[in-house]
Design a protein around this nucleic acid. Sequence first.
DNA 1: CAGTATCCGAGACGATACTG
DNA 2: CAGTATCGTCTCGGATACTG
Lengths: 131, 131
Amino acid sequence: MVTKQYTGSPEDADLRRADSLAREIFSDIANKWALLIITALDERTLRFSELRAEVDGISHKMLTQNLRMLERNGLVERTVHPTVPPRVEYTLTGPGRALRATVDGMCDWTRTHLARIEEARRRFTPGTPGT
Amino acid sequence: MVTKQYTGSPEDADLRRADSLAREIFSDIANKWALLIITALDERTLRFSELRAEVDGISHKMLTQNLRMLERNGLVERTVHPTVPPRVEYTLTGPGRALRATVDGMCDWTRTHLARIEEARRRFTPGTPGT
DNA sequence: CAGTATCCGAGACGATACTG
DNA sequence: CAGTATCGTCTCGGATACTG
């Protein structure tokens, strides 16, 4: 994803900027919680508490933190209903849904390769250098 | 990905096991370095040092650590040539290549949405509750 | 209910030095 | 060259408590 070996020419400045931005975005979303939140949202609109129940294992803190990050990058839209108690809903944006499609691919991959991976783990012997 | 609301029936034990395994595997691979290594390998066979140059930014330690993990899960095959100095080559296995396809999707997504995300970031105002 | 802030332990990560 | 081990730093991430 990242173009290496810059020549130092003027246009390279833009390339380098785009690359570091791409890396930054990639690093943002390539983490467990972000991806799980995206798949949990799917096509639905969920409240904070519903989302928390859906992702399972995620803490209050990680959920808010990742939601802010996803919102900042324009993957998730946050809607506040000014009621009391407050009702805040989250839904995927266009780019967010586009990403979800590929993340779904990862989930499918995990499911379909479960058995092979489990077997590979049994087969794997940590300290057998040269074997 | 994870099935919730187990009823407690006998077959549920298996479901729960499969789910926690899937989550474990997902957590393993859903991290920045693992995904970058996988895309870097692509269809090629690379030596440790080549891989290190390719991923850029990764430390010696993180590379070995993630390579072991990927090898353990059967995504990467490690070949040691008993020469001196040693020559160790890494290549994606079948499952590894299958996963790479979906990860490529993520990279493509990042590239095609760069501009929109950059704009979303500018638009994003951290502390504007209720707006 | 949703969100923020704080504390604190556990793990990530980089740098360095050492082996075969 | 590839790998392991160790150490120090820093971020991640959970638990808790407090606001609107």
